[in-house]
Design a binder for these strands. Structure first.
Length: 472
DNA sequence: TGAAATGTTGGGGCG
DNA sequence: ACGCCCCAACATTTC
């Protein structure tokens, strides 16, 4: 009778989970562990706390169907393993790798400690299509430009067979904590009250989202993905963040679709390349662990960011007076997500219209987004700022009115999230301040704010700033 | 995965 | 019929 611990982290699924598969295959008794490694009173409640609560609950329920249970523990990982090892005869420990710098560090230390204790320890890739250290350019370095990176990924992609567990080990009983005691759900105020009408955390919800996407959305993904009023995107990102679905499952389903529907090949390719950006971001984070704090391009260290707390607050709460920006920020607050096109618009606005440091924007997204991944979030903010690898050129400044007119021509998205503009005619929906007096049906400055800045002026200022740091 | 400024072209009005 | 101007419409350059 050999005994193992399986440590759940960002892989809260039973299907296609390589480390769990291996643990179940090789051992007859198992502890299924999840660790909250910050003291409970220090856990910051974020949108993702809400998701984590529901995801762990779902996971625990699906384990019960196999007469297994999820053991919850709070504390330092090494102390928890110490305790588990001393009270049980543990032969082996399994997990799937995580890729944030602190996690890598923590896991390395634990692994060598376990090896010292003569406990067989194995880690797997359950999170990415390719390991960051396996995708290298001709010179043996990491890619700094997306297109060649993704080409190389596709070239060397080796599709892993589905890992489906048929024989489950017996539960090795051990004391755990109560999920309710972790108090992950927000209250007073419950800002997550609407989340459950948009999301179903857990493995089953993830599979449903994937099916719905393949059946109803993938065929016109390339065009429709840019229209924020249409639900044309997969909405898989939070599921991927928590590992409720494996990226290979998505990849395999896409490859199959590609064969069956060659006429939609461009759409399929485009969707897969979005998975590619996720991979690219992880590669950047792996080779540049300071991605969250430091500019990838050092000349941006000289950028004269403004201290503008009032502007930041108005941005966060969707009160900038630019309808498409405010709609995005309010969608984020109410649903825990924001359409990707609008993320670029609000990010460009914070950086290039308000001149607020991209780190402030990234921090707010960390708190409020259900899908916030350290890699994708920070790589994308640096991309917009122009300070990142393969970033948008500095002169690419979004005009929020034109972006609105181009991607939300009927104003449907704006009207969904900015109710006070519901009756404003299409002509003025993206720039109400230009309307002749009396034609809006509302009063600017009373029902809806005046624009916080003049975009045209801000644009010229931004160009001057960027010009100044160029070549430094 | 931009947008503004500037340049070019061509049709129509008009003397 | 011709030259001239105006100005959309489109193309190119610049930030």
């Amino acid at each position: 009778m050999s005994k193992a611990i399986f440590w759940f982290r960002q892989d809260l699924r039973l299907f296609d989970n390589p480390a769990l598969y291996k643990a179940c295959q090789n051992h007859s008794e198992i502890i299924l562990l999840y660790i909250q490694d910050k003291p409970l009173n220090k856990v910051k409640k974020t949108a993702q706390s809400w998701w984590l609560h529901h995801s762990l609950k779902k996971l625990s329920e699906s384990l019960q169907a196999h007469q297994l249970s999820l053991t919850l523990k709070t504390g330092q990982v090494e102390e928890i393993f110490q305790e588990l090892l001393s009270t049980n005869q543990i032969d082996a420990v399994y997990w799937n790798r995580c890729y944030e710098p602190m996690q890598i560090d923590r896991d390395q230390k634990l692994k060598s400690w376990l090896k010292q204790k003569k406990v067989h320890t194995e880690s797997f890739n359950g999170f990415l299509l390719n390991e960051p250290w396996e995708v290298l350019n001709q010179q043996g370095g990491h890619y700094k430009v997306f297109t060649p990176f993704w080409k190389q990924c596709l070239k060397q992609m080796n599709i892993k067979p589905e890992a489906h567990i048929t024989q489950w080990p017996k539960a090795l009983n051990c004391d755990g904590e109560n999920l309710e005691d972790w108090q992950l759900l927000p209250e007073n105020p419950n800002w997550a009250q609407d989340f459950s009408s948009y999301w179903s955390p857990g493995e089953e919800g993830a599979q449903q989202k994937l099916q719905a996407f393949i059946n109803n959305k993938l065929y016109h993904y390339k065009e429709a993905r840019n229209n924020p009023a249409v639900q044309a995107t997969s909405c898989l990102s939070p599921h991927l963040h928590f590992g409720e679905i494996s990226p290979w499952k998505i990849y395999r389903v896409c490859c199959q679709y590609q064969l069956q529907h060659p006429e939609h090949d461009l759409n399929t390719q485009h969707f897969m390349s979005e998975m590619g950006w996720r991979e690219f971001s992880y590669s950047l984070l792996y080779y540049f662990p300071k991605l969250t704090t430091d500019n990838f391009r050092p000349e941006f260290d000289q950028f004269p960011w403004h201290q503008y707390p009032e502007g930041l607050e108005r941005w966060k709460h969707g009160q900038t007076g630019y309808p498409i920006v405010d709609a995005g920020m309010r969608e984020l607050w109410h649903t825990g997500t924001m359409h990707n096109r609008v993320r670029m618009i609000v990010a460009s606005f914070l950086i290039k219209d308000l001149f607020i440091d991209w780190r402030e924007g990234a921090k707010w997204f960390d708190l409020t987004l259900l899908d916030a991944d350290m890699a994708s979030n920070y790589a994308s903010w640096q991309w917009v700022a122009g300070s990142g690898a393969d970033a948008a050129p500095y002169f690419r400044i979004f005009n929020p009115c034109l972006q609105g007119e181009k991607f939300d021509p009927q104003g449907a998205y704006v009207r969904t999230w900015v109710k006070e503009l519901e009756l404003v005619p299409n002509k003025w929906i993206h720039h109400p301040w230009d309307a002749p007096s009396g034609s809006l049906g509302i009063t600017l400055g009373l029902d809806y704010p005046h624009p916080i800045v003049d975009h045209n002026q801000a644009r010229h200022k931004a160009l001057a700033y960027y010009q100044k740091i160029k070549g430094q």
